[in-house]
Design a protein around this nucleic acid. Sequence first.
DNA 1: TGATGTATATGCTTCGAGCATATATTTTTT
DNA 2: AAAAAATATATGCTCGAAGCATATACATCA
Lengths: 167, 167
Amino acid sequence: MADSKIENVIGALALAFADTLQRDAQAKAPEPGPAASAITLIGHVPGLSIERLRRALSLSHSGTVRLVDRLVADGLAARFSAPDDHRAVALRLTPLGETTCSAILSARQTGLASALAVLSSEELQEFGKLAGKLLRGLVSTEDDAYRICRLCNYTACLDCPVEAELA
Amino acid sequence: MADSKIENVIGALALAFADTLQRDAQAKAPEPGPAASAITLIGHVPGLSIERLRRALSLSHSGTVRLVDRLVADGLAARFSAPDDHRAVALRLTPLGETTCSAILSARQTGLASALAVLSSEELQEFGKLAGKLLRGLVSTEDDAYRICRLCNYTACLDCPVEAELA
DNA sequence: TGATGTATATGCTTCGAGCATATATTTTTT
DNA sequence: AAAAAATATATGCTCGAAGCATATACATCA
């Protein structure tokens, strides 16, 4: 079929972008792996529970608990008891965690911006429009949204297509 | 800046595409992690050396050797001595490895195609064109090419933008 | 020939991740 | 209202992939 070449190109680009994205983000995190995403998610949703974090990161339960243990030990996050559900933990970033979160997000953005610099302004608009359409097709549950947006800079996501799709 | 929203959307899409891509591919591999990429790379470049594989997978040397050990133990790959350099190992897939490689590639393609199905034919063409332009901007060395194309279906990549950029 | 660089292999250790299980709280059922 | 089931978190245990340091073989260059 004529389209499999296009699929190859798009798949390779997604892989390459995700690589640099995660590399840049993880370089500012205290450890490699999902720590960077955990920090930006907690920053995005203060009061997040461990269970929601677990689903967003596609980890096991114990893996998530241990990851949070490490973030707390590093002074980046803190556990509170959730006001509405006394079983649950409400996670928040410490001031140091906020700083780390900003560093992760700006590193992510810098790398991405330089990769996108080869497009003209019009091409970027067009590419972004199609990307938004594709993104809306990938979201059906709230867990999907947290997972997909796990490294987003939410301060810049004013009319996020993911939120639009869920609403 | 007005463009950071677009960057968010593109970054999130890349992450989501790469997630499904790797999930689909790894589900057909003997183990999670870089094994799926290793198999398709060896399939793509028979005679590949461990050192080249190492750079394409961004692993340590010992990690790559052990990964190859496991692929060989699983009956998916085999070591030969490279004809031109007697230090190097030439890697090849066994018939079972070829079968696995095909399964990985077709799983990858199926998932990607369903994600792209929300675009019209014209939109897909346009998106692919811009993706190719972006992709060319990301390649400067041959190692980059192997890394970026590590999960590509090379039989469908007749005029690959990565190869075009290197030539 | 000798020296340096490159490719591979292996012993050792570390540490992130999952499984099984235990406890606490909420929700549902009877 | 009491009992049962479901949900959220925590922890002991084990596994195994990955890196570091080191050793060996071959190649290349002086």
